[in-house]
């Protein structure tokens, strides 16, 4: 909700300013926007579909079963991979992580899950490649995955 208010307020201010300055350029902006949107539409729709499938097969309860009851490296590895392939909104992922902690998961496991969840995007990779190139996408996601494991390990040592 906050997100929506911020985006639409920002848009209203920018649009008003743009219209005052030049109708022509405002029209051009809309054209650029429509072109970009059309280019991205298949990728965006595919993300919707894949996210639905993944969360349909792996609902939060199943994730809890996979990484909650078992400690150790395997649980952390599973959590990191789950975080990388799923795309869960923050508002759902944090309560999920809290419930994982309660059901016995370690801080390392939770940190791995949250960090790969936000930093590594398997489902969104095709879109990232289209916008930023294959090399950029592979390197950013690969390094982020490694970084997530290091971050998780450090957090386990410091907080555990």
């Amino acid at each position: 909700m906050t997100t929506l208010i911020v985006i639409y307020s920002l848009l209203a201010v920018c649009l008003a300013w743009s219209l005052l300055k030049s109708r022509q350029k405002t029209k051009q902006s809309f054209k650029v926007a429509a072109k970009a949107l059309w280019k991205m539409a298949p990728g965006l729709l595919a993300i919707v579909g894949v996210v639905g499938l993944i969360l349909g097969v792996l609902p939060p309860e199943t994730i809890t079963k996979l990484v909650g009851e078992e400690a150790g490296f395997l649980a952390t590895a599973i959590a990191a991979v789950l975080g990388a392939v799923t795309l869960i909104p923050a508002l759902i992922s944090f309560p999920l992580a809290a419930s994982l902690l309660r059901s016995g998961a370690t801080v390392t496991t939770i940190a791995a899950f949250i960090t790969t969840l936000v930093m590594v995007g398997f489902v969104t990779a095709p879109m990232e490649i289209k916008a930023l190139g294959r090399k950029f996408t592979l390197l950013r996601n690969g390094l982020s995955f490694v970084a997530a494991l290091i971050i998780a390990g450090l957090m386990g040592v410091i907080l555990g």
Partner: peptide
Amino acid sequence: PVFVLMGL
């Protein structure tokens, strides 16, 4: 709205 902002 995000794409229109990008256009602007």
